[in-house]
Design a protein around this nucleic acid. Structure first.
Lengths: 94, 94
DNA sequence: CTATTTGGTTTATAGTGTAAACTAGTTTAT
DNA sequence: ATAAACTAGTTTACACTATAAACCAAATAG
């Protein structure tokens, strides 16, 4: 009846990050931080987790003289996000 | 943009319990346990949390000689569940 | 030149989730 | 009658998560 929800996605902040990345080609750390209203520390940790799971790809660059972290969703991540939504539908009838 | 998701409902097991109770007038512990495939200990803990938040009402009775725990959703619980779904929609575009 | 800001990472702690162990009694088999 | 197994949970200890605070390195502003 109730399928297990992917624990990596069943986290408010990680879900928000994935949701954002589903709708853009790529996004930088600061933009994600503003959109999600997360603290930098928390975001850093959660991005690392999503990255380790290969749900997102992280590129470290320099924007002028400042470091810049660019994130983008992977195919694995897209599929996981879509599956999560499907699984969730069993919990909430929509 | 992203509203905070009610932490009481953003838990797989508690969400499953609430989802079940949204669709029935009342349900007993054992039935919920079977439907959710949860362990008794875990279910006991989560039911207590939902009960303390007044999201569900718990009645302890006896069914013949055995104890029986009957749960039902409250109006507060229904509203919280519906709000959770609305908030969640911002994360997953449906 | 020192104080603040940018763009993060690391770390310590509080909060959550879960299984295992336990309580209290019932039924069944010997 | 008594031991073993089952019903219906609760309590507890531990693992896992989430988060804020502290930190770091470099850049810029006063």
């Amino acid at each position: 009846m109730f399928k297990n929800l992917d624990p990596l996605l069943h986290s408010q902040l990680r879900l928000a990050v994935m949701s954002l990345l589903m709708n853009v080609e790529k996004a930088d750390f600061v933009w994600i931080k503003e959109k999600t209203k997360a603290t930098a520390g928390n975001l850093s940790v959660q991005i690392e987790k999503l990255s380790k799971a290969k749900y997102i790809k992280v590129q470290k660059k320099f924007k002028g003289k400042y470091p810049q972290t660019i994130c983008s969703i992977t195919e694995t991540g897209k599929l996981a996000f879509e599956k999560y939504i499907e699984d969730l539908k069993q919990y909430i009838n929509i």
